[in-house]
């Protein structure tokens, strides 16, 4: 990517996408510090290898691919050696709203359920339902075919539905942070 405008686009993408990428990495890795480290490393790599962006059709999946690859590297190298998942205390301490015990409980439950998912299922779930990537974009991001993404999403939803932490009688709309604040 030699064009100055492309570089500017990437720069703006990095700036705007940083919080979202950190949160995505947090859901994948389960630890905020690991997530920030991973995203910083990923962004450095993305900037370093920004030339390969010219072969891509879109910045978003490309950037998420960098992040996911970095997270996968960390999952393979570091995570097995320690308990990386956030505890309920961690979740409570990072809540910025006034509370909401139900939200904390649900966040805790979803993190526990995600923790029990295999890495490859967790990644597609987070990319689809948190980062709002389409199946095609997820396929680009993880370097697999769209059919693979679909089957993984299906399997992930099936496993999450069967997870004891998410056994709710009826699905309810969870208020977002902004709604809770006011």
């Amino acid at each position: 990517m030699n064009d100055a405008s492309d570089v500017h686009d990437l720069e703006s993408w990095l700036k705007e996408g940083y919080p979202q990428c950190v949160r995505t990495a947090y859901l994948i890795l389960g630890n905020r510090l690991d997530a920030e480290d991973a995203v910083q490393e990923a962004f450095l790599r993305a900037w370093k290898f920004r030339d390969s962006l010219s072969m891509e059709s879109s910045v978003k999946p490309w950037l998420y691919r960098v992040v996911v690859n970095t997270c996968n590297s960390r999952l393979r190298q570091e995570i097995p050696h320690r308990d990386h998942r956030g505890t309920e205390q961690q979740l409570s301490s990072i809540i910025t709203s006034e509370d909401v015990a139900g939200r904390v409980e649900l966040a805790s439950d979803i993190m526990r359920a995600l923790d029990d998912l295999p890495d490859h299922l967790r990644v597609v779930t987070v990319l689809r339902y948190f980062a709002d990537l389409s199946e095609r974009e997820i396929a680009i991001a993880i370097g697999r075919k769209t059919g693979t993404v679909k089957s993984r999403l299906h399997e992930a939803r099936r496993r999450l539905a069967a997870h004891p932490a998410l056994q709710v009688e009826s699905p309810q709309q969870i208020p977002t942070n902004e709604e809770a604040n006011g």
Binding site: R23, T24, Y26, L27, L91, I94, I95, T96, S97, R103, L106, A107, S108, D109, I110, M111, T125, V126, Y129, F130, H154, R157, R158, L160, A161, L166, V168, P171, Q172, Q173, I174, P175, T176, N177
Partner: peptide, 17 residues
């Protein structure tokens, strides 16, 4: 299958706070 809306909301709740 888990509801997609519920799943999405839960993930946002867990990550956005």
């Amino acid at each position: 299958m888990i509801d997609e809306t519920t799943l999405s909301s839960s993930l946002h709740a867990a990550a956005n706070d």
